[in-house]
Design a protein around this nucleic acid. Structure first.
Lengths: 356, 356
DNA sequence: CTGTTAGCGCGTTCAA
DNA sequence: TTGAACGCGCTAACAG
């Protein structure tokens, strides 16, 4: 079933059918209705490839993530895809990670598909990709990209608010020795989180001894290892801030093995707020980055690039904030707790999240 | 940069360029090398849409899942996509769930893109979708589909082995009162799991009182609710088998709140083996369905339909088995435990999984 | 083995 | 407002 048949059956030209399908306003309503009738009746599905070829626009956006199965990314994909449906764009998904060859294959795929834009959310290795696309004049969206031009849109993620809230939340609970378990220093975002942590500690006059700043790799194993190491420090920290949730969960698990009670003996804070964070025992206090806001920003940027007519580059925010979500893995520092009348009943975790 | 330019620069016809790109064997190696040189130098990326239009094949497979952010599906997507890369297919992803309109939009998108096949992994609402695609002669893969024809490939998931292992594992540990928390009866797969459970219990002469067969909805909340309800039964069950992992995790959490020790007071078994299952405290004993095997089966079926030449429909298995993975959420029944010399040390969970 | 040519199905001029 | 005709970039016959 092609456009020709519809035209013949509706007694109009293919141009009219095309206009009807594309909702061009200047089509005679009577003809339009007749055409739509036939389309409905015959079950006509316009061929996307022919459309793309004729119009020069594919109505496909690329989305590159490091791994679809790492928590956090599925949410982004979901939100991004949903926006795609709303605006009639398809999403070409690629998961690229570390492997330079796969990475280029993915980029090639996007370009051969003539995507109208690409969102690169790989958090760390986008540099070389951006170049490839720039050469082909494909609009790109990337997190925390250094420069921005007509073809490269970006937003900063503002780690400080969430981390400041974290540090001050812990300080208010009486914690002084606060450890930090970061990600690998190769990752720009991991570095930014760590710097923000150190800055926020200094702001309120807390010192951060280097011996309780650990470098992990954002896995649960790394969290467990770090917890083990930290537990044998002369002056054991009373709180551990982690640069992602998996690390924090690893810390919690190891603490359990070491018979440390959380939060009575040790407070733990994560980062990302993956869906599982609220179901860990105890529910994890963590810094939230809205996956939805990231997806929104990315999609809006690409849409703007693809259809500049719409609203002339307006309403593009340029930084995404972070927030602390207080759950049950943080509590008063042990010494302060001893002074308190009695400890809160175990297992009485509230269902709702508190934001400060 | 189009094929014409490459042809001109390499001093050959566009047909030769096309053949070179498509690795047709009969091209003079000298010419081929010359062409490849130019392609490389000019950075030529063949236009996928034009290719699809000319050849009548899109090299795109559709993949429909209920929700990308539910654990289990990301793994399937990952595996499926990886196979796509290997065989030079792109994946058009759609998450469809409950909403009839979105569902049809998704199907329309697939058809308009002229996908060479669709894998429908929605576990429950594929019926109407299958029809739409059959009409358009699009090959479809679906789990547990009733009939199969040339256009509809399918595999059964064999729930019984895993559930039989579960039941016998628990029986061997001395459990007699074994409860079951299933999913909604609307879901065919949930029903199949429940039936398998009841059959396997009867096999070994254990009775299943209806009052400890609960119906949930595959969420953590449902698990918690069921655990609460079961804990107040006159004769409390000593083990709970759940029809998915989230439910099991909900049970565990509620048990924690109720100060029930797992596995000393209560054994819990899940289903699916989502990645998080091994990181729950205690690590969850669960029935595993290999996400990879599902993805493999789906992809192989679609590939066979799209390129029948390859190996003539061979090596297509028609059932995917399930296995019990024993971790730390199951243990001896309480009465038997009392007889034992001493309980195993808390927190000494092994890192490796045991399969029976 | 190579080149010529006719579509693939639709968007988009340009006249009418 | 409508229609005829051309072109998008490539594949696939077929002829050489």
């Amino acid at each position: 079933m092609k456009i020709q048949e519809i035209a013949r059956l509706a007694n109009v030209s293919i141009a009219t059918v095309s206009r009807t399908v594309n909702r061009v306003a200047t089509v005679d309503p009577v003809l339009a209705r007749r055409v739509r009738r036939v389309i409905e009746k015959e079950g006509y599905y316009p061929n996307t490839h022919a459309r793309a070829l004729g119009s020069g626009r594919s109505r496909v956006f690329g989305l590159m993530v490091p791994e679809v199965s790492t928590p956090f990314f599925p949410e982004v994909i979901q939100a991004f895809t949903r926006l795609g449906v709303q605006h009639n764009y398809e999403i070409l998904l690629s998961s690229v990670f570390r492997d330079r060859r796969l990475l280029e294959t993915a980029a090639r795929q996007m370009i051969e598909r003539r995507v109208d834009g690409v969102a690169i959310l790989t958090f760390g290795e986008e540099e070389s990709l951006i170049d490839i696309f720039r050469r082909r004049r494909v609009p790109v969206f990337a997190i925390d990209a250094d420069c921005a031009g007509r073809l490269l849109k970006s937003v900063r993620i503002d780690y400080e608010p969430g981390i400041r809230q974290t540090v001050q939340h812990l300080a208010a609970l009486g914690h002084k020795r606060i450890a930090y378990v970061g990600g690998t220093a190769r990752l720009k975002t991991a570095l930014m989180r760590k710097n923000a942590f150190q800055a926020c500690m200094q702001e309120i006059g807390l010192t951060v001894s280097p011996e309780i700043i650990m470098e992990g790799d954002h896995t649960m194993e790394a969290g467990a290892d770090a917890a083990m190491a930290l537990s044998s420090r002369r002056e054991r920290p009373t709180a551990i801030v982690c640069s992602n949730d998996l690390t924090a969960i690893g810390v919690i698990r190891k603490a359990f093995d070491l018979s440390l009670d959380i939060p009575e003996d040790l407070s733990v804070v994560g980062f990302d707020d993956i869906p599982f964070a609220q179901h860990v025992i105890p529910p994890l206090t963590t810094v939230q980055i809205s996956q939805k806001e990231i997806a929104d920003a990315a999609f809006a940027a690409l849409l703007n690039a693809a259809e500049p007519a719409l609203d002339g580059d307006a309403r593009s925010l340029n930084s995404i904030p972070t927030y602390l979500v207080v759950r049950a893995s943080t509590g008063m520092a042990p010494d302060r707790l001893r002074d308190a009348r009695r400890s809160p009943p175990r297992g009485a975790y509230g269902q709702t999240n508190r934001y400060i």
